[in-house]
Nucleic acid binder design. Structure first.
Lengths: 123, 123
DNA sequence: TTGCTTCCCTTGATTATCTAGGGGAAGTAT
DNA sequence: ATACTTCCCCTAGATAATCAAGGGAAGCAA
């Protein structure tokens, strides 16, 4: 519930991050989750119940393609890689993210990030 | 469904922004929506079907209190203001937002923030 | 054997948001 | 009077993303 137990992700950003991770090369679900956790210093916890549905819808929409391979740990794993469509989608979602998060930061006071001397003429 | 039309908000951030707007003083729903649109330069579009449920749940959780008054345009309006609990909640949500958005930016490559394109700038 | 890690998956509930309506009252113009 | 616009409130139903909580299997080590 997120009522007290804060959510582990910002809704609507998982697909984008998955695509981004796959820019670095193909990877399987478990590995993608691990990478996101690592890079974010354990801030972002990707639950499997969120991740696998995400991978499936991305594949369904043609942003990813998958092949079964043997993992580095000698286990059966489904490796995903970005398609051309996926790369374009990543760009779109990244732009959207920047636009929205910048807008939110503005609303939140512009002092959220590096502060640009405020006061004067907001209009 | 935002099937083509990208969503107008980042899910999970509306409550926080509403609380933030009310830090500046009490306001009514219509005015809150207008403020968010203004400050964000029309990037963030707060639909009434999202806003009013948000206000009601915030009030229900004790973060806001409401009183009916006459608006500046001489109309009946429900003015909301932050409670003490609401102020604490705003702080929590703000921290969470910074933490999550920073983590996402890390995953997205740290270079996510739009470069000014012109020259030296970043500093 | 037990147990840990890696790897895949689904079902059901929750929750936020959007769509698409509903209404009413004040002011301005015709 | 009518009509129109802006201001202001609200809800029901659908959609969709996430989470919680299960499931299983296979490799490896003690």
């Amino acid at each position: 519930m997120s009522q007290n137990g804060t959510p582990e992700l910002l809704k609507g950003t998982l697909d984008m991050m998955v695509l981004r991770i796959l820019m670095a090369g193909s990877n399987h679900g478990y590995g993608i989750a691990r990478r996101i956790r690592q890079i974010s210093d354990d801030i972002l916890q990707v639950e499997e119940g969120s991740l696998y549905p995400a991978l499936h819808r991305l594949e369904k929409r043609g942003f990813l393609s998958a092949t079964w391979k043997q993992s580095e740990f000698n286990r059966r794993a489904k490796y995903y890689r970005l398609t051309t469509k996926g790369r374009a989608q990543l760009k779109r979602e990244t732009n959207r993210w920047e636009q929205l998060s910048d807008a939110i930061d503005k609303v939140m006071g512009a002092a959220t990030r590096s502060a640009p001397a405020l006061s004067a003429g907001v209009k």
